[in-house]
Amino acid sequence: MYRIRFHGRGGQGMKTASRLLGTALFKSGLEVQDAPKYGAERRGAPMLAFVRADRRPIHERGTVVSPDLVLVADETLFQVPVAGVMAGVKASTVLAIASQKPENVWRDRLKIDSPIYVLPQSEAADDEIPDVSALIAGAAARLTGLVSQEVLRQAVEEEIAPYGPKAVAFNLRAAGEGFGAMAAGEGSVGESLDQGADSYDKPDWIDLDLDLAATAAPNVYAAANSVLVRTGLWRTLRPVLDPENCGKCVWVCGSSCPDGVIGVDANGYPDIDYQHCKGCMICVVQCPRHAFAAIPEQDAAEAAQAAQMAQMEGTAS
């Protein structure tokens, strides 16, 4: 059986990547199982997806614990323990990482002998979540060596068709790019043997002791830790203030914000903490002078980046 795991953040398209690969493998004559596994079910939150493929019907279930191929769409996930990117990775596991850093950097950093392939990726803005589903799926298909480029194309067309011809064209290009980039690793992923019942690691079962209720109830006694979670990554729309129209009645937008992320700046204008604003747009609706605009997150991020560049150029000259 081939066991393949995709790691990314909500919004990067890892579920789609697993479906593209699953469909491509199914069309190539294999039995397939594919599924996403969400943690927080939120944009930007670490998540994974997996594919199993075999010549026989598949009885195994749940997350892949001993992968033959691991694909990583966001390199920052290596630093997030709950993402579990390296869980069950063994010497024969092939790693493919979307990154601007070369293979030797990853080899030093991860300190493993596994084959590592780097998927070249253009730099994304700090708070942007790029969809790399087809790129990653194309790479995975090539690394398994089980899928032809033609079948990959059919899989992309079938899975992306509901999103329209533009999306199909974009994803066909991306899948081709991923497939092409992994030429050197074609077929490098092997099938791992099934764990036999003759000799196996005995589970380290314990008899759980009774704890006092103060310990054994699901309580968090640590205070003020929610600030560490950048919930701003969940946003798809960004409220942006036009100071010209703002009446500085910050108590209106500020008290209607369910996340309490609207403060007041030195000049009396509302000041949104975009690290934690989830983009509910309640402030946009509540503002009596319609001073907030709802801007698609990607456009807003690009505009912010351009403004920053202009400012830097201005400072340089």
Binding site: F26, E31, V32, D34, A35, P36, G62
Partner: peptide, 9 residues
């Protein structure tokens, strides 16, 4: 999850 979100033939 193991069925609801899992694709199988």
């Amino acid at each position: 999850f193991s069925l609801s979100f899992t694709r199988e033939p």
